[in-house]
Design a protein around this nucleic acid. Sequence first.
DNA 1: AGCACA
Length: 289
Amino acid sequence: MAAPPAQYAQWSAPAPQADGPHDEVRTIFVLGFPLDVKERELQNLLRWWPGYEASQMNFKGDQPMGFALFSTAAMAMAARDALQNLVFDADTNSVLRAEMAKKNLYVKRGVAGEITTGFDASKRMRTGGNDYSPAPYPAPYGAPYPNQVVPAAAPSWGPQGYVAPAPQYEQYAGYAVSQPVPIAPTGYAPVQNTKDNPPCNTLFIGNLGEAVNETELRGLFSSQPGFRQMKVVRQGKNTVCFIEFVDVNTAVTVHSNLQGAVLSTSDRGGMRIQYPTFMSSGLFLNIPF
DNA sequence: AGCACA
């Protein structure tokens, strides 16, 4: 069993099944990409999915084949289901088909056990020190936009049958959940937000300070009307945050009102608020860990 | 249905 990515470290790893296979397949096999797909596109599609570890595009066949490794089989299956029937490119009519792979993706590891090849989670932030810039894919519950990725069929967790999952990660966190003290921004600074995605009920918060903490973020966001839950993802010097609202309208309001908000810990200007990519919404799905 | 990298 591989260690889960650092951002899930506060969650208890699943206990190895005494009677289960220790070499369980936790890799997905994805077809249906357009011929000009880039390996990076697969990485960007999956990078925030819970348990994502590494991925690879293989171009040797007649059609591009994507492989992605996750920390557990359950996480892989959840990603597989989320990718199923996804319209990757409306122009080329590419609809993704995903299955569990026959074998796990091979990842070369260094002495310290870190992944050294492939497009892996440990290198998420390697692009010039910038933090995450979402690919132009819409997030889950948003209206379909032309030329963008939308689920061909409404996902089972979509608007119709969607029931808010309990904020399950809190039970794993190593701190007591107490009533957040409301926090107001210390000010506002202009922020560039050139590449955003279509509005949806989830927000991605970037350009936060290195010293930002969850209490501060919770103090700012949990008092916003429509707030449902949030998840802070730490990756070294970079911290990002995903916030789910009860509907698109309340998310749009916060996207506008708190754009460029400066916190006491901000050291690079105001926070950048964006609508996240389709797959990043997986942070709020009910995935068994 | 089509499963590669080592």
